[in-house]
């Protein structure tokens, strides 16, 4: 049966008619056509589908859209300024070459932004721990870790 789900995505109120079993990631990608949020594993392992829900990083493949009713969701598309200026975390990924194929990157950035809000100057070890839920098959993580450290410090400095 179709039900209606209403939420805020990237600051805009949206609603969609969906089946009750629809996942949040499906609404984001298929109903809203925001395809920056990726599906890697579809089993809660890889974090490619990470979005921010009410300010917290969550895996959008592991929840029903109905669980996000009324929530404030941000996807990778909502992170840069409207004029295209990159978010400091995005800029840090670019600067430190924190990606190769880029498939994991939206999830990495969404998790990193949430993490950096609470950890303005993380150590390498803390960053690696924070990335438990994000897998990358390309980079070996080294530059991702560097990027997140730099991005966190840039966010704290209000750049």
């Amino acid at each position: 049966m179709a039900v209606k789900v209403s939420l805020k995505v990237n600051g805009k109120s949206v609603s969609a008619e969906v089946e009750e079993r629809t996942l949040l990631v499906t609404v984001i990608r298929e109903n809203l056509r925001l395809t920056g949020t990726h599906v890697g594993c579809d089993t809660a392992q890889c974090g490619a589908c990470t979005v921010s829900m009410n300010g917290k990083a969550v895996k959008s493949c592991s929840m029903l859209a109905m669980q996000a009713e009324g929530a404030d969701v941000m996807t990778i598309e909502g992170v840069a300024k409207p004029d295209g200026t990159l978010h400091p975390m995005q800029a840090a990924f670019k600067e430190h070459h924190g990606l190769q194929c880029g498939f994991c990157t939206p999830g990495m950035v969404m998790n990193a932004i949430d993490y950096a809000k609470h950890h303005p100057d993380p150590t390498e070890e803390q960053i690696r721990e924070a990335l438990e839920g994000n897998l990358c098959r390309c980079t070996g993580y080294h530059n991702i870790v560097k990027a997140i450290g730099a991005g966190a410090r840039a966010m704290a400095a209000g750049k």
Binding site: A44, M53, V58, K59, M63, A130
Partner: peptide
């Protein structure tokens, strides 16, 4: 427990 995204939910 798990990872930070899992812990958030």
């Amino acid at each position: 427990i798990g990872d930070r995204q899992v812990r958030a939910m």
